[in-house]
Design a binder for these strands. Structure first.
Lengths: 257, 257
DNA sequence: AAGTGGTCTAGACCACCTC
DNA sequence: AGGTGGTCTAGACCACTTG
């Protein structure tokens, strides 16, 4: 069918599930088929409601998941639009580089908006990860990372005060500051998981609350084995791919028998 | 404050944001502080509404995001409960192993529920990834992976018919079948991203629709360089961590100047 | 000022499970 | 049968942007 998704026909027929899911499917199909293209506006919610014969609450509910998954964008006072394609960026996981260097290598602009920067009393998590003493203070760098104007990640880095006594001196790349002090990490361990973004973090990344994000915890080491950096990052799930190459485990290459 | 989260006090005061977020924060705090422990039941929605002075719709909305993020579980006809802690499993990304082998190494049980298995006409995506000809058919293995009774992942593997002529013969580990045919992959490239799970996939994984999942696409190669397997997996975001070790890029170890 | 999305309400019916 | 969550409605007010 090449009909518009908002005709009242077909709604409420039994066996097709909840009405809000039926509407959601229609809109998703319209986007997938190209009937609705990037940047196109959808009718106002009240109009979608009257067109479909559904209530506005039900329309909003149908639209909601498409907003959360990044297919639609809503702007208060403005309207609902089909999201412009966000080109996925790939980051090679096997290389230990900083966000700044990574983007520069691709010829992309890098900006940061600082959320917080300073010396603090460490959290128990930071004491654990950085091996701090009870009297130590921790340097925290919290920022939103943007590339070509698009917010891509929230980065929360913690370092011992001894490693970074003046966090306010970090302007762009943390790693370049560390390198200037002869403290560039050469090894790191990362843990990657997925999480639903809370309202605050979603706001920083300009996505809907509940949207999926990639959470990465990284602990970086000096050649000496000393821990130097503990960073928790949240990447936009719709804008970032991590790529990694795997090799077979040595002990499973050959089997007895 | 150690009050219960459902007292009407404090709601509606200005400057605290929407009511549903205030309720959400109260419940989340109660869980974080241990006032609500794993398995505890929350009052019925109608009761939470009358206790707080909010409408049931608003209560549901506040609860909704906590369900999506896996902190609460709702069972129709039964109630709303604090989720039991799901122990996160770590998988070393640098090793190329199968789900079956990976779990066996940890001493965990492995089960699979088949969703689909057979020979099909390939999708364009499969033609690209596997380098198929127009007349080739593709073997598809779709299953839900469970460990100790808990669904952890959906795995959708595609292989050329020439590699796996009899997909119905795969019972547990795909890799062990390939190895028996002398076709075990030794190298793979993975792309990792995050996504909100749709209703169907969320159902397979027994999480709420919209919950965050880890999406992994993997292409595996034989020693000869031939592509052997193209797999798309969705892991529960709340149950899986991927761990990876990074090393510094050779060309950034030393810099001129 | 008019229009948009964001929030909230009171009340209803249904499907499911067994409180 | 009674309680629970799941869905849906009509209508209201607010905050924001400017179609």
């Amino acid at each position: 069918m090449t009909d518009d998704p908002f005709s009242p026909r077909g709604f409420s027929e039994t066996g097709h599930g909840p009405l809000y899911l039926q509407l959601q499917r229609r809109i998703a199909d319209a986007i997938a088929s190209g009937r609705l293209g990037p940047g196109d506006s959808l009718p106002p919610e009240r109009e979608m409601a009257s067109m479909t014969g559904l209530s506005r609450v039900t329309v909003r509910r149908g639209v909601q998941e498409l907003v959360a998954s990044g297919q639609l964008v809503q702007r208060r006072g403005s309207g609902t639009f089909v999201a412009r394609k966000v080109e996925r960026l790939e980051q090679a996981l096997s290389l230990l580089t900083s966000f700044t260097e990574d983007m520069a290598r691709r010829g992309r602009s890098v900006e940061s908006r600082w959320i917080g920067r300073g010396l603090f009393a460490p959290s128990p998590e930071e004491v654990m990860a950085l091996g701090l003493g009870s009297a130590d203070r921790v340097a925290r760098l919290e920022r939103v990372r943007l590339s070509d104007g698009l917010p891509l990640a929230i980065e929360r880095a913690s370092l011992s005060q001894q490693v970074l006594p003046r966090p306010d001196q970090v302007e762009s790349s943390l790693y370049s500051v560390l390198e200037a002090r002869g403290l560039r990490p050469v090894r790191a361990v990362q843990r990657i998981s997925a999480t639903n973004l809370g309202a605050a973090d979603a706001g920083f990344l300009q996505v809907a609350p509940g949207a999926a994000g990639l959470r990465i915890e990284r602990i970086s080491y000096l050649p000496s084995g000393q821990v130097i950096e503990f960073t928790r990052s949240l990447y936009r799930g719709d804008a970032y791919d991590f790529a990694v190459e795997l090799k077979s485990a040595p002990d499973t290459d050959r089997r007895p028998g």
